[in-house]
Design a protein around this nucleic acid. Structure first.
Lengths: 338, 338
DNA sequence: CTGAAAGCGCTAACAA
DNA sequence: TTGTTAGCGCTTTCAG
């Protein structure tokens, strides 16, 4: 149907080589012949065969995209917006996506599956752990990779929202309203983001001269159920909530928190203030809309892809990019302490 | 690094052809040599080179995945869950995904971009329109494709939730509670799903001997804002809501509806009942959780992928699959009319 | 500036 | 049951 380069070359009266160069804008071809060839290509509806080209150039033009393990991914709208940033950017650069199963037993297996068979040119990962075995694995295999989320390890590329100062600002917003007893619900254990958001909270409390009561550190896991459970547990243990404000390490948990609080008869923000982290669209669906730390989610997806493509195509040193975040809807689910 | 088939063949003392067959489990190779070759392959860590294989077999092993145009996609959590069904199934079959930009000017352009360059083996589309120009376009290009959503056109493959009876059941649930004045907020104009959900509504009203007041048909577009706007408009026109129940053609609109109603001082479901369609996870985040018609979203993604893979690999007649749906949370955002 | 030729790594007729 | 021989369609030395 669609003609091949060899045929086009014949029609042009040039060799395959010249046609190939002309189409690739190689400076070595004479401008006239270049325009001529391009004209002919258009005329005959020539379409390069990507797979053949990829074989010749020893590349796949596909990227492996890893998500957090189920059921996290599938429930967190964060990843829809993120995916769009990623897929659109990669599409612009001609890359496809290989998305492995999220219900994999061990992550390292998945990485094996993906890097093996020469299936991808690079990998985008999420949620670096404090000790992340994936890093050495990937470095050994010499596959370019970038993390969504900052790593502890140096010389690794990553793109991240500013977790520390985001959490700091969240606490500051609460303090400005007069809160002094502020609980944090932590994220999934072992993740760098969990640690950083906690660090921001801790730093802010310290800066504002508010001692942290160990009872205010509630364990969560970034799921809505986790947020819900944390509140229920407090209620069971103490019969009531012992703080005037809660900083949830992500929006999904904040949503769970609010549900649990409402069920227990608390009014938000009259009785208790709640602030989240992420800025997922869904937060706006609540009444009132969730006060949160807005991350540039779509842009995170764009940047992380951009960095990886750059890394694949031009190599170079690892890059770290931290994007700014900010508190939004500052007067919705947070208010003056009662 | 990783050895090639030619090298493996040499080590085995067989030809490339035999090795290729053995690895592909071709019945023509003697069982012993097959196990021998497989053993050697494992021993030498042989990894097939997918791109080369694809070139030889004239295929790409990638699928184009089309989403509704922005900002629909990016905001509707439906598509996250759906994507998971799709990507996991395709991964199992060894396919990658090409996801074009959703902010494309014209859909047909996107299809052009995708099918062109021999980049995909098939395409998954969403939301067939009543008159869908993509169908003829794809048929001309002879690219296998499957729709998420039933088409009007025969001999096209699709997978869909049962929209008509889903809408029917939604209305029935309301009628059972005693409602007689039931408004519908329609979906995006021109879509088959919009029409079918309306048809289910109409049919149910008729079956239950409830005349439909034209004033009860509110135009929507499947976005939350659309649902919100529809309610606001009613309030502006009539000063109050003229019905006792509202069937929103999807959950996102139902969420918008509830927001607008709450803002206007209505209590759900005491003053007005609201039921949605889709069963997105987010609906459960509301208090009370949204009453809705649950679609098997993840399975829709699985099935549509399965059908496409089948079509690509074995050809055959177009297939139509309709999955059952059901009303869930039946006593949350709907109740007896006041 | 252009062309010839040798692959990229695998598959598939066609023979044997 | 196995091997030989051509490719798949494009890129890229190496000559000229």
């Amino acid at each position: 149907m669609t003609i091949t380069m060899a045929e086009l070359a014949k029609k042009c009266g040039f060799s395959k080589a010249t046609v190939s160069r002309a189409l690739a804008d190689d400076p070595r071809v004479k401008p006239e012949t270049k325009t001529y060839i391009k004209g002919m290509a258009k005329k005959y509806n020539y379409e390069p065969h990507v797979v053949a080209s990829n074989l010749a150039r020893r590349r796949t033009k596909t990227i492996g995209l890893m998500f957090p393990k189920a059921p996290r991914t599938i429930a967190d709208p964060f990843f829809l917006e993120y995916l769009h940033g990623v897929s659109e950017t990669l599409f612009e650069h001609g890359y496809s996506l290989l998305i492995p199963q999220v219900k994999q037993a061990r992550v390292t297996d998945t990485i094996g599956q993906i890097t093996t068979h020469n299936r991808v040119d690079g990998i985008i990962l999420t949620e670096p752990k404090i000790e992340d075995e994936r890093i050495t694995l990937l470095q050994e295999r010499e596959v370019p990779f970038v993390f969504l989320g900052s790593t502890v390890c140096e010389n690794v590329s990553w793109v991240d929202g500013d977790n520390i100062s985001g959490a700091y600002e969240a606490v500051r917003a609460l303090v400005k309203l007069g809160h002094e007893e502020i609980a944090i619900i932590t994220g999934e254990e072992g993740l760098v983001s969990t640690r950083n958001r906690f660090a921001g909270y801790e730093k802010a409390m310290e800066d504002f001269n508010l001692p942290i009561n160990p009872d205010w550190i509630w364990e969560g896991d970034f799921t809505r159920e986790g947020g819900f459970r944390a509140v229920r547990q407090q209620l069971e243990e103490h019969g009531s909530i012992q703080v005037t404000a809660i900083f949830a390490s992500n929006d999904l948990m904040a949503i769970g928190v609010i549900q649990a609080l409402k069920e227990a008869g608390y009014e938000i923000p009259q009785d208790i203030s709640v602030i989240g982290f992420d800025g997922i669209e869904v937060g706006q669906y609540l009444s009132p809309p969730l006060t949160t730390v807005q991350q540039p989610i779509y842009q995170l997806g764009q940047q992380v892809s951009q960095v990886l493509v750059e890394q694949i195509e031009n190599g170079g040193e690892p890059v770290q990019i931290k994007l700014p975040v900010q508190v939004v809807n500052a007067t919705n689910t947070i208010g003056r302490p009662s």
